[in-house]
Design a protein around this nucleic acid. Structure first.
Lengths: 347, 347
DNA sequence: TCCCTTGGTGAGAACGTTCTCACTTGAAGT
DNA sequence: ACTTCAAGTGAGAACGTTCTCACCAAGGGA
């Protein structure tokens, strides 16, 4: 393998100038020509390890996620990786398998000199591990999930507002008995806050038996949903706070042969199929109404923000929180109770 | 950040000995104690970049795949990453978006000094790019797909034999008119060879109109399937060579309201839902019969083989080809024509 | 007793870059 | 014409390890 010293000898230009040229700084026309010639002749490639030693840059970033087999993450990672590669960065993938301890461990390993930046979808509610990185000047972008009381760059979606507005729309359609099944993650919390706020703002009661919190994946969403529809006075609409609950609803629908939306209206936060090879679910009619997250965009913005932070590693910083808009897709899975009432009255 | 020189000063032991100790070589009891004490006191961490410069090891490996949003890959990667991490290796993910040129490019970038080993699921039918790596002493493991006439370590599944046996079973159940829709990838080729061999061995005719090759994802599997069932004399059983074709069959079933297996028997190479959050499809009865690939195992064996190669980087080597067994899952989606004939006769 | 081996040691070179700093050159400003 | 300045240059130190090599002590075989 040719080194910069070989290029120096071949071209007659000093290694300092060669190094500068390779990093995009200006050199005289003549030197440029000589260097390019020598580089080509020797098939010289910059050694990124040697380069990283002095400059403390590895041109690689870490992505730490709870579970790559969760369909939420691959599209995000795909776009993120694509953007980073365009800027010469490599992506180190780290799947912590939903184990809080492992998450902290992986973050430490990656931050110990290996990466120039981190993107993390945390499962922890404490922020020490992330704060340590920031204190050491390592940029961290939080993905999808925040930690209460901790300020850090982030890319999230409008969990609260989207849920608030979606439920508002459902209420306008005449739904007054609204139930929700949700998980124990950060995002679930935000979404349920939105649901309850919508109910409150419309002066509708919030019944305890209509709200079931699950510890996923241990708890079974189907059970919770079945229990809810079996109530003496069941809700007319079910808000599924994430895809796992949505899938549960799909199962209950098949198992109990539910008519949607006659027996129950359903709305899901998340698209049940984000995967190109799983979009067949759209053939099961009516499709569930859903709040769709812009997955590629999340990846894109994460990349852009991280790149910006790595370019300008100023110490004292103000956290940038980017909240992306979701898209509400209303289908026949939500009954228009008002219109039905009107037509009932007409009869 | 403390360096090894700081530890040297603190402990009074030379940096050579410290370096040796850190890499697991034996030192005297007294030195061990001194070093450990100093390391702890200074919170010393080995700098992997500096370490890699001299030793030409980065302790990272590259995984190059066509599409991370294809449900096939995440479970493999998850297990692979898990195994590699246990041995101190990091995984750099590289998604080439099914573009042959980009695949070659990514491989070159990764191999230029950045990684100690490569796992690649190639889309190319030429092997130069991989051969270059091997010639440079960089271990490469081929994943899922081989290249004709090119010898290289690999982890695949028994595409040919599994298809051969599965179709053999179907023939025993009385299916003589067997059709297949398949893609243009390596794996499709092997599977179809198995199907045709089974037909040939049973002296059944291989009708051209029963075999449709698609260039995925451009071509539409649904169309091909519909055309086939609309033949004047359609097949009684359809072999779907991959998950995309399987999904196509699912769509056609819903769209045309097909009765499975009365109207058509179906078997799919691949499980239609590899994702934990997409397993609802099992609630659509009857589930399609399928040939299930051991995804985690693929990741595990890839890791083991790669680790072995990196430990013993002997030049002249004989390629190791590991072919994993798939699991055949026969459901009600395959009609037992023979028994039906028998009962028809009894009537 | 002497030689030879074995296991452990430390000094210093090596790895291939980037960074620092003092220098040269030519153009612009007075 | 003389200073000032900016842009570009090259020598050599620096980055933090690992590697090479010569060395030393202890123990075993002759």
């Amino acid at each position: 393998m040719a080194t910069i010293i070989d290029v120096e000898k071949e071209s007659g230009v000093s290694k300092s100038t060669i190094s500068r040229f390779l990093r995009g700084m200006t050199v005289t026309e003549e030197n440029r020509r000589k260097i390019e010639e020598a580089v080509k002749k020797l098939d010289y490639k910059l050694n990124p390890i040697a380069s990283g030693l002095k400059s403390s840059k590895t041109f690689s970033v870490g992505v730490i996620i709870p579970d790559i087999t969760d369909s939420f993450f691959p599209p995000i990672i795909k776009e993120f990786e694509h953007c980073m590669l365009e800027h010469g960065y490599h992506v180190i993938l780290s799947d912590y398998g939903n184990e809080k301890g492992k998450e902290i461990n992986q973050l430490r390993i990656l931050s110990d000199k290996l990466v120039d930046g981190i993107v993390i979808a945390t499962s922890n509610t404490r922020s020490e591990h992330i704060k340590t990185c920031l204190d050491n000047g390592l940029p961290v972008i939080m993905l999808d999930r925040l930690i209460a009381g901790f300020s850090c760059d982030s890319i999230t979606v409008d969990n609260f507002n989207a849920s608030y507005r979606a439920i508002g729309d459902c209420i306008k359609l005449g739904h007054h008995k609204i139930g929700a099944v949700y998980g124990h993650f950060y995002t679930d919390g935000e979404r349920i806050k939105g649901v309850k706020k919508a109910l409150k703002d419309c002066r509708l009661p919030i019944k305890d038996e209509y709200f079931t919190k699950l510890v996923l994946p241990a708890d079974n969403p189907e059970e919770a949903i079945e229990k809810m529809i079996d109530l003496p006075d069941p809700p007319t609409l079910l808000f599924c706070s994430n895809i796992y609950v949505g899938i549960g609803a799909l199962k209950v629908r098949l198992k109990r042969n539910l008519n949607i939306p006659e027996d129950l209206s359903i709305i899901v936060f998340d698209e049940i199929s984000g995967f190109p090879n799983h979009d067949y679910v759209t053939y099961i009619k009516p499709e569930f109404s859903s709040i769709i997250q812009p997955l590629s965009e999340i990846g894109k913005y994460a990349a852009e923000l991280l790149l910006e932070r790595m370019r300008n590693p100023q110490r004292e910083y103000k956290a940038v929180n980017i909240e992306l808009k979701t898209r509400l897709k209303i289908t026949q899975s939500i009954k228009n109770i008002k219109n039905d009432l009107v037509s009932d009255l007409k009869k």
